[in-house]
Design a protein around this nucleic acid. Structure first.
Length: 231
DNA sequence: AGCTGATCATAC
DNA sequence: GTATGATCAGCT
């Protein structure tokens, strides 16, 4: 326990990555931040990505911005997921920005969504705002790939949403579209604009959008994991 | 209460 | 603006 330390280098195998993640289970964010020498914000209001960065440090992921998977050599993406006392997600999960132009000929097979979700290390973290940040516990990790059903659900939603984008109907899409995958703003604020395609094929300016996993999807994959592990 | 639309920090 | 990391918070 006292030898616990952040990985100084990216893990060389999934097994090593998972082993390190399992070491974090049961610890509090306060303990992990102190051991890593990171200051703890009072809350996440102005530090929304803080937990993600903290766990990146512990797991040897390259912190910072790179359009790559967190563990590129392993092809693994890291996602922290806030959960309530019953282990259910408190928030949707951002996947990637949605391409709003240049989409002629794009397919699910080569999509960013599919690539990002090919293999994910999920790390549940207590997320209730009633629990002080430093006292929140890290849960047991789950190394996951979509099964046949999950992949089909994702593909169907992705194709529906991309069809609307290509047809110039992006501004008619709401977060209600999609069963497990939704499209929502992903921007600094409501004044940030990016290019998209209008209803008549003309260029328009609209909010940047991102693909997000709905809570029903992540809740199911977490529940399945804990069911199989426990019984 | 939960969801949808909006927002926060930082690097480049 | 885009890309990384996500959660906030007003409204239904």
């Amino acid at each position: 326990m006292s030898s616990m330390t952040p990985l100084a280098h990216p893990p060389h195998s999934e097994a090593q990555l998972l082993a390190q993640a399992q070491q974090l289970a049961g610890r509090t964010l306060g303990e992990l931040a102190a051991m890593a020498g990171l200051p703890i914000p009072r809350d996440l209001k102005r530090d929304k990505g803080w937990i993600g960065v903290l766990l990146e440090v512990w797991l040897g992921a390259s912190a910072g911005s790179k359009p790559e998977q967190d563990f590129a050599a392993l092809g693994v993406e890291l996602k922290t997921i806030p959960i309530d006392g019953a282990g259910r997600p408190l928030e949707t999960t951002f996947v990637c920005v949605a391409p709003l132009t240049g989409n002629t000929g794009v397919s699910w097979e080569t999509s960013h969504v599919r690539h990002k979700l090919r293999r994910v290390l999920w790390i549940p973290v207590e997320g209730s705002r009633d629990i002080p940040l430093a006292q929140r516990h890290v849960g047991a990790p789950l190394l996951w790939s979509p099964n046949e059903d999950e992949e089909r659900q994702l593909r169907m939603d992705w194709e529906e949403l991309m069809d609307l984008i290509v047809l110039g109907e992006v501004e008619r899409v709401t977060a209600r579209h999609g069963e497990v995958l939704q499209l929502r703003p992903k921007a600094a604020n409501s004044k940030a604009l990016t290019e998209a395609v209008g209803a008549h094929g003309e260029p328009i300016l609209t909010l940047p959008r991102g693909f997000y996993l709905k809570k029903n999807f992540t809740a199911a994959l977490l529940a399945r994991h804990f069911f199989l592990k426990t019984y």
